Amino acid sequence: MWDTADAQFAAARAYFAEAGTLAAPRHATALDKTVGQWLTNCRRPGGLGKDTERAERRAAQLTAADPDWNPAALGWTVDWQRHHVGLKALLDEGAQLAEIVPGVTWRGDDIGRWLATQKRDWHRLNDEQQARLGEWGVEAAVRRRKTATAAGVKNGSARGGESFTRGVAALAQYVEREQRTVVPRQHSERITLDGQDHDVRLGLWVSNQKSRRDKLNAGQLAQLAELGMDWAQDG
């Protein structure tokens, strides 16, 4: 059915046997073949050949190898599919969902960071994506604390300005997602406020707030204490 492409299809099946998915990055190889680029080409319009019947047979072969070989037909990207498979692999290996945090990888992909993004951007996922993740207990990140804190800053409960607003919002998002209050010094957190994305060097920001504790007002200290910063509490 593949004619001269038989070797590439064999390489694709070999890649699936190893990775559990045909959502290969473009640079992926198997059996000394550039299987990632080949699969990318297959997914393009007309990529399975101009002959309709032969294209349908080829699509059927790929579907038999991996029903999700063409994620665009499902409403998401190859990258999303590969990370989704990576999350399943980690869980199948015995990892707990709470243990899959940024920095936990599978075959070179940072599954922890991807998972945190899915929770944060849950409303952007389609129903099928939410259903697939929901089977493993993944759900939207709870942002009530972040929203209240950020609103409090903007309403004048603290005078730290936009920088403090972003810092507190980033800290709230981090605490809600990670369920811990210790922030690695090198950690950066991406947040969205008023429709704009911001990258906050959160670990450094927390360290700076702690070192200048005596310069923070009562409202600022109260917000930090609410987020679990023991050093911000009274006494």
Results as ranks from 00 to 15, higher is better:
A73H: 10
A28G: 00
H198P: 00
Q186D: 15
Q186V: 10
D230Q: 05
A10G: 07
W136E: 12
K50M: 00
R144I: 09
I100V: 11
D6T: 10
G195K: 01
F16E: 12
G228H: 05
H83A: 12
R180W: 04
F16R: 14
N126R: 05
Q186P: 13
Q186F: 15
D194T: 11
T29P: 07
R113P: 01
L202Y: 05
A55M: 10
Q196I: 10
L171E: 15
A218Y: 04
Y15G: 01
R212A: 15
P45D: 09
A222L: 11
G49R: 04
A148V: 08
T147N: 13
G228E: 01
R143V: 07
D121P: 01
W136P: 03
L171I: 02
A151W: 01
H83F: 04
Y15N: 09
Q37T: 10
R113A: 08
T4Q: 14
N126M: 09
A150V: 13
K215L: 10
V101C: 04
L90C: 04
A11H: 15
T105Y: 00
L87P: 04
A72Y: 15
A11N: 03
G152L: 06
L22W: 15
G36T: 04
W122Y: 01
P45A: 11
D194Y: 05
T40M: 05
T105S: 03
